[in-house]
Amino acid sequence: MWRWLHPYAKPEVVYRLLGRWLPWVAAAAALTLGAGLVWGLVFAPADYQQGDSYRIIFVHVPTAMLSMSLYVALAISALVGRVWQLKMADWALAAIAPVGATLTFISLATGAIWGKPMWGTWWEWDARLTSQLILLFLYIGVLALYHAFSDNRNGAKAAGILAMVGVINIPIIRYSVEWWNTLHQGATLTVFERPPMANSMLFPLLISILGFGLLAAALIFHRMRNEILRQELRRPWVKNEFGKELNEAERT
């Protein structure tokens, strides 16, 4: 397996591979996200209890789910970076963290905006909301540590350790609605049960989740390419890659 995987650990190979996938993933993201959100905003029926305010769900749930799964991905790449000393896994921290932080911020903001008309308050220090806020601080902490050292390897090491320790927060967020009495409702979507939701609302939600997932992938690919370039700017392969693009840009 290692022999097969080895060429993929080369920065230039990853850079080109991501570059080849990026336009397709970005196009798929635009398509699915557009379809999911338009379906959710325009065609899905209003909720019999919450009226049209529930339409915030089509942003809130996908971003909240992704904020957690991206953190797990962040911690796994930190682990791989520490254990196998794979620099590309370290660099992935810098690509994933800003995307995860933004999605966490969106889930918090849309949650607050949804909470105002439904619960009567923008914010409440309850378990789900507080643990999600801690997730945002963890992302920011990882990003800050990564860029805090003049030697990038030290920064990646420190950020990776914080990322791994912070994983403890993920089950706390996930089960906060069951362990504590909170204002927040229980999970809408679970893997094994049929969700208690009409298909006319469920399908646009699932498509939105897929759309946000693809959007996150596209953003991470783009940022990973940037990070590879930043680290390898003085390597000869960049000249072929970057120099060529430069000439094409000059010709036009």
Partner: peptide
């Protein structure tokens, strides 16, 4: 109007769009 919830729905979507635009 979003059944009277227009302010909240559009504010939520607006902030989300803005945040992603900043990231891009």
């Amino acid at each position: 109007e979003m059944g009277g919830y227009g302010f909240y729905v559009w504010l939520a979507f607006g902030i989300s769009f803005f945040a992603i635009a900043v990231l891009v």
